[in-house]
Design a protein around this nucleic acid. Structure first.
Length: 271
DNA sequence: GTCCAGGTTTTTA
DNA sequence: TAAAAACATGGA
């Protein structure tokens, strides 16, 4: 009897039937930088594993790795987003349509260091360049990912690079920031994982002590890297909206302010 | 050539 | 303290 040959690329089902989640909305929302759209879905690297994610006919799958719970967790498939939307729109009814259109946008559970480092690179920069710099950083450090490509280097590895190497991949004036923060993390000057379990306020204060981390990057880290949903990254568009259409809104004090921020962005874009 | 990009730090009044 | 200016880089 011949054992059936295991296919080279195994497909692991994360979700069998349609649910509220939208893979496309989530991966293109600006919270992550290492996913690329392909003919059938998205390919990219997280946790040092190169995989393909797909959503077809309600079915969500991952190819290239069979750790179902890891990827379910990454895509945050077990959080009740419809109930978050209900709460946000109760606070701010004007966001109802936008929130509906954003339905399916989840906050990924990304690794804290990768998130922090990525958003330091993001400052005063555009998305294609952010993606390119991050890609080069991974290549420069040369830590192979399972299934091909390069893993995002940990803080220790980045700390071993010198400023010139960082400038060489296009970091520009952010190079010293990355060098400084990677060293602080490596030397134990800040414990990123611990910041998940302290208050958003305390975590924010700690992040702001880092060289090159200001209010915007700190809030992005709080929301996208540490799951403090009440953190609201305020770029120029959001600031403007909070001064005009949503002046005086209670959203900024909501425990889902960060998620509401995504809906405000959609609200602006749809106008 | 100028402007700008999911800002932060440094300098200046 | 608050408002400019400086900071690198590359694409439009």
């Amino acid at each position: 009897m011949i054992l059936q040959e295991k296919s080279v690329i195994s497909e692991c089902v994360l979700e069998e039937s349609p649910c509220d989640f939208s893979l496309g909305a989530t991966l293109t929302s600006g919270q992550c930088f290492r996913w690329t759209e392909t003919e059938r879905g998205y390919s990219g690297i997280a946790f040092g594993r190169c995989v393909a994610l797909r959503q077809e006919g309600g079915k969500i799958t991952v190819s290239g790795d069979d750790d179902r719970s890891l990827w379910r967790e990454y895509l945050d498939l077990d959080t009740d987003y419809p109930s978050i939307i209900r709460e946000v729109t109760a606070v701010e009814p004007r966001l109802e349509q936008a929130a509906k259109r954003c339905g399916g946008l989840h906050i990924l559970r990304q690794e804290p260091w990768e998130t922090l480092c990525s958003f330091i690179i993001s400052q005063n920069n555009n998305i294609p360049r952010i993606r390119m710099i991050i890609s080069r950083l991974c290549e420069l450090c040369g830590i192979g990912a399972q299934g091909g490509g390069y893993a995002f280097p940990n803080a220790q590895t980045v700390a071993q690079l010198d400023i010139e190497q960082l400038k060489g991949i296009g970091c520009g004036y952010r190079a010293p920031y990355i060098a400084s923060v990677s060293r602080t993390v490596t030397e134990g000057g800040i414990d990123l994982d611990r910041l998940k379990s302290v208050s958003a306020e305390e975590a924010r204060e700690a992040l702001l002590t880092l060289h090159g981390v200001g209010p915007k990057v700190a809030d992005c880290m709080l929301l996208y890297g540490l799951r403090h949903f009440e953190a609201m990254p305020k770029d120029v568009w959001i600031k403007r909206a909070l001064e005009t259409e949503f002046k005086g809104t209670e959203l900024v004090n909501s425990r889902f302010a960060g998620i509401a921020q995504q809906y405000i962005f959609e609200y602006i874009r749809s106008k």
